[in-house]
């Protein structure tokens, strides 16, 4: 009858509208997609930058009200490779004090990887520098898991809720302009901000246990910290889940500049100091 027909037409029209909105690239973040179009499904969406560059990324539309845009992943292809191929978040050019910024990817507009490959290789999209955000969310997902299982497979998930990014320019690109990830930029006491986190999977204790026994004595879980500097003046980008209280941050902070004295250079700099997976020393 005509009512059914009208309902069906309306539903169909709404569906087409949604598709059109997705394919005319009118949103700059997953939050905008959720707020403007009411899309509540996790998955890949098209976004656009201020300059009109179109890209696809994963939206988490579930966690704490949803609207989270995946902008980057840090993946360790080999913890034994020290600032070699694949260490895009530190340096792929060798451990070199003459390249204090390393590859410089924490503070440039370079991009690499694909959203579907984000657990198999490093990933960075234009959202990293284009989106004006308030908060961050971090997922630690076992390597090579496919996108549809990321959330369930994650060993740790948390987010911030105090809008700290607004204070630092709205994204990490701007934050790291205030706090360069550069060798010899300062000393251990020149650490960047440590922001309290809300756990979505895991807790303070499980966070503690992911790191080595000696590391556990020099951080406080329940935070995300930016631009840590160690005793040897190497800079690291993010201490995920913890706030350092000591200066051996190379054992539990990720990403970095281009030089670590003497040998720890890498995206996961010295997570293997006392070998891997033995629950001893710094490992």
């Amino acid at each position: 009858d005509s009512e059914t027909f009208q309902n069906r037409t309306r539903t169909n029209f709404e569906h087409l509208e949604r598709l059109r909105n997705r394919s005319t690239y009118v949103a700059r973040s997953c939050k905008e997609i959720r707020d403007r179009y009411g899309d509540e499904e996790d998955g890949l969406y098209y976004l656009t930058t201020a300059n009109g560059m179109v890209y696809q990324t994963f939206c988490d539309m579930t966690t704490a009200g949803g609207g989270w845009t995946l902008v980057a992943s840090v993946h360790e292809n080999s913890v034994y490779g020290k600032c070699t191929v694949g260490d895009r978040w530190s340096s792929q050019q060798g451990n070199n004090a003459d390249l204090p910024d390393g590859d410089g990817n924490w503070s440039n507009r370079n991009m690499f990887g694909t959203p579907e490959g984000a657990t198999s290789d490093d990933f960075k999209n234009p959202g990293y520098y284009d989106i004006a955000a308030e908060d961050m969310s971090v997922w630690h997902v076992p390597n090579n898991f496919p996108l549809e299982h990321w959330s369930l497979a994650a060993i740790l998930r948390y987010h911030t809720n105090n809008r700290f990014l607004s204070l630092y320019g709205g994204n990490l690109f701007q934050l790291f302009k205030h706090y360069p990830v550069r060798y010899n930029i300062g000393s251990c006491s020149n650490r960047g901000p440590a922001i309290p986190i809300v756990y979505d999977h895991g807790d303070r204790e499980s966070t503690r246990m992911f790191y080595g026994p000696r590391s556990r004595n020099e951080f406080e879980p329940g935070f995300i910290t930016f631009r840590a500097i160690n005793n040897e003046r190497a800079a690291m980008a993010i201490c995920s889940g913890v706030k350092p209280t000591g200066c051996h941050t190379e054992h539990y902070c990720i990403g970095g500049g281009g030089y670590f004295d003497p040998r720890q250079c890498g995206d996961f700099p010295s997570f293997d100091w006392d070998r891997l997976g033995h629950d001893q020393g710094w490992s």
Binding site: S73, E134, W139, H159, F271, L276
Partner: peptide, 15 residues
């Protein structure tokens, strides 16, 4: 650090 940690990718999101 634990093997679990080093063999997991760190995914960063904004909102």
């Amino acid at each position: 650090a634990s093997k679990e940690m080093t063999e997991a990718a760190v995914l960063l999101f904004y909102r």
